[in-house]
Nucleic acid binder design. Structure first.
Lengths: 207, 207
DNA sequence: GCATAACCGGACCGCCCGGTCAACTTGTTA
DNA sequence: TAACAAGTTGACCGGGCGGTCCGGTTATGC
């Protein structure tokens, strides 16, 4: 095996210009297609929407799952960044509720059920998800300490309930684009300490 | 075309004994398989689980959707009956919450997302669904009149939120069998009038 | 117990999917 | 501008799906 002299092979070689353009076209098309049809979106349709060949898709991402994971990873990192940033806000309760609002809004584009489907595939995605969850847990605990969220709720409870608005709205055919806010408000009211009833004997789940 | 004398053809002829047995085996197997794997369950797997041939499945129900619709129809009628029965209870609030509890519990076996998937297929199912929804709306309005449920919520809001517990729990791998109760409690607290905040400017959806 | 119609079952069909590959095109670099 | 590596492409493959069909089987009425 020979090696070209004076060539320090970069960890990943720089992408050729057309390849980079195709890659971003692909990511946009895939995000749209996954958002519309979920995991049922076919690679052929994604390629057609991006205006590239099917083979090109598999050159950029060896598997349909890898393509999905790349997209989900983006959103997860984005949300994790927001969560860490909001952790520094003065009002702990408003910080958590702002985060839930942003998360619910983002899920209009990409439901979190992908976290389940894609989480088992990609190790990087799993790590990123754990970091996001940890940041959310921190937000929740601070909001509880400030008395803005009922004490008998866990971080994981909040994580699960945060997926509700976008899911619920997906059942309404001609829903207004901000209908999810209505159900987010309902979810948040359920998390508030005022007027909270017992959650019953069912133990929470560990993280 | 000849007609056998003295034979009044019944609307649907009586099922032969073995056919009736196979049909109930099929329904049980299909319900289990749909519950576990959703719409991804394959007819071949259902047939194998029921211990019958694939052709027999299609003899009883001409389409996979028809099979699903038959199962969903059962649960919907069951729930509608319960809703009408609870409408006569003294405590209007407890009646609604009892119904939500029963509905969430049933969905552990069969998620309501099937109502969306199968609803477009079968006319009878659509009618049955409308009757169920009407019964729920009646329950909600009575609970609101009794002051047990916040006034700014509609019947459809409650219908949508009623699907939350089973859906949320489906994300938790080794969930305890009654974990859904925890999230039902959270949902119900969000529906209570005590400590309710504004739902914001987003208008509710019409039924 | 026999004739018959209802029923059963699994081989088979066409279709679509994720993924591969070898021939071809194009950006890059010296 | 020449030469090559990187990138592109669509025909192709194996597999699984919903649904069909017909030869064999079985319950049932007389």
């Amino acid at each position: 095996m020979t090696r070209a002299p004076e060539t320090r092979a970069p960890a990943t070689r720089a992408l050729r210009a057309d390849a980079a353009r195709n890659r971003s076209l692909l990511l946009a098309a895939a995000a749209a297609e996954f958002a519309e049809r979920g995991m049922d979106a076919s690679v052929a349709d994604i390629a057609r929407r991006a205006g590239i060949g099917k083979g090109t898709v598999f050159r950029h991402y060896p598997t349909k799952d890898d393509l999905l994971a790349a997209i989900v990873l983006d959103r997860v990192e984005e949300l994790a960044g927001l969560a860490r940033q909001l952790f520094l806000a003065e009002d702990a309760g408003a910080a958590l509720f702002s985060f839930l609002e942003a998360a619910a809004g983002k899920q209009q584009q990409l439901d979190f059920s992908f976290l389940r489907d894609a989480g088992d595939i990609n190790e990087r995605l799993r790590e990123s998800r754990e970091r996001l969850f940890a940041a959310i847990v921190a937000l929740v605990e601070r909001a509880q300490a400030a008395g803005a969220v009922r004490a008998d709720v866990t971080g994981l409870d909040v994580i699960l309930m945060m997926c509700v608005p976008s899911h619920v709205v997906s059942f309404v055919p001609g829903a207004a684009p901000d209908l999810w806010r209505r159900y987010l408000a309902l979810v948040i009211d359920g998390l508030r300490p005022e007027g909270a009833h017992s959650l019953g004997p069912v133990p929470p789940i560990g993280v």
